[in-house]
Design a protein around this nucleic acid. Sequence first.
DNA 1: ATGAAAGCGCTAACAT
DNA 2: ATGTTAGCGCTTTCAT
Lengths: 342, 342
Amino acid sequence: MAHKTINDVAKAAGVAIKTVSRVLNDEPNVRDETRARVQAVVKALDYHPSISARSLAGRRSFLIGLVYGNPSANYIVDVQHGTMACCRQQRFQLLSRQSGSTQGEELSKEVLGLVAQTRIDGIVLTPPLSESGELIKALDRRGVPFVRISPNDVPHSSPCVDMDDEGAAHEMTEYLIGLGHRRIGFVTGHPQHYASKQRLKGYKSALRKHRLPFQPEYVKPGNFVFDSGMESGRQLLTLPQRPTAIFASNDDMAAGVTMAAHEMGIAVPAQLSISGFDDTYIARAIWPRLTTVHQPSYEMAYRATGLLLQMLRTRKAPAPIRLPYTLVCRESTGPVSPGEAR
Amino acid sequence: MAHKTINDVAKAAGVAIKTVSRVLNDEPNVRDETRARVQAVVKALDYHPSISARSLAGRRSFLIGLVYGNPSANYIVDVQHGTMACCRQQRFQLLSRQSGSTQGEELSKEVLGLVAQTRIDGIVLTPPLSESGELIKALDRRGVPFVRISPNDVPHSSPCVDMDDEGAAHEMTEYLIGLGHRRIGFVTGHPQHYASKQRLKGYKSALRKHRLPFQPEYVKPGNFVFDSGMESGRQLLTLPQRPTAIFASNDDMAAGVTMAAHEMGIAVPAQLSISGFDDTYIARAIWPRLTTVHQPSYEMAYRATGLLLQMLRTRKAPAPIRLPYTLVCRESTGPVSPGEAR
DNA sequence: ATGAAAGCGCTAACAT
DNA sequence: ATGTTAGCGCTTTCAT
């Protein structure tokens, strides 16, 4: 037997299809008794309204798009699951999309095409796409609601969920300083990524606060990918006065630094402390386990999706949410050893 | 301005909407000249047909569902990207869904509900969901086309993409034997997972072939998750006659074994060789990098999706595809040391 | 080779 | 509080 339709339900419940529609959409003006009867029939028939039909007839598709370009698989999975959990609760479906291009006109065109085809009700934007001014402008012009995850400096009225990246990096750096480290290397994130700048800022401000000199040769470039961490790690560790601690802007790169140290026969944490950022799965899977900043990616995505859906209902942008981070201290960091602290 | 419709295109091209429809769907009976004109207008107007309308009117939604319950994030991401790449090429959209329940009636209900709501054209099933007889039966009854990824013993005419798990495990075990190992531990995968059985089988057959005794105490249970590998690793390494090599049924568990070895102060690979299965990101991110079986997850998913879409077009099931694996030898394995091989 | 009309399963706007 | 009707943007079926 084919799919049930709203007509089947209406017939079985002895009401008009409009009444069924009201019940499905939680609209008022239905007697409790009628509502209960319809709901019973819906359950009995195992009826699921067609989102195509709803989307075509109404102004909602019950489809949410998650668009990402982020290279860190573990981060993405956390975000996707957070978004999915929220969608499921509110009976929305999730359409995932990895964007080929990361910025500019091409990106905007791709996302706009997605919207045109699918009529998705809203979009969850992850970094670094959440920072593309052009994309945001394009979405605005089309009137597509969206929510951004992660800090970013594109001023916009749309909702946003973030955390205090600068504060977290500051705190992590202070933690390393507290362990006695004076020469602390830093591996940056992708230069276009606003969070990268914030994390670097926090690193710098902690040095300043503790009157340690900021030495540019201790800051190496990265792009959030493992290999870039390994490469920058190698460079830092071959410096004449090598750092006794290295703080990488995400876990993947911290794992790369750890790999570099292993290859060079430098013991972690005895000779070198390493810390990361994000607290993804990899932080607990490598040896020594990474001291890192726990970024609540799953919850950020969950809350972000919640804001988006709320906005769809109320038609106005809810206030941004800032979620707390926590320092997670594991075995990759330790007190500086006397021998290393010349 | 709102979205363009097929009417806009028809008007601009000076044809009936049916002709536009023919062009969009690559149907015959359109003059080349007319076709070209319509295509030009489509491009000029940046027109994207609404999948809701297509889905409602026709028998296709251009939506593919990816349903997974697999706990390994890195594996899932590979699969999702493979599926996405194929969908993008053929102008399908991807709806991702992590199933809450892994089996039985609940799973079937969830997936059937998804189908009813979204009218997705077909489903890509990943292990272990691809092995649920009940789900497969339910999908059959509803006439929902699907394709399964990974080996499995539910006989069915639907297409399937897999690899030779048994052969791969056999080869990996032989490789360890070739390095001189005689006491080889094994960590199994999730018991419900057919690939687990195949991998164990390959391990056993290699031992047999080389006339090594199969010792049940060298086989410990796992469920494809890091922690289970660590736990089983600990148990194996506290055996009175501990193994000189451990073969875990996936990379996450092999990473867990590596962690256990580190914690117990056992050097890898000097005192213990470790190998995994899958060749996910984690295999290259931990130290020492894992010797493992490269499973072409991305390509398996890509090809599987291709089979599914082909089946939608031709209405008949294409032949299954078996993709080749390769052994990837890295630093986690080495010749057995004389001291260990008592 | 092209077009006209009906209708997919819903919701919107307007009855009652 | 409930029902009726007219579409949403396409594909289908049947003409021409």
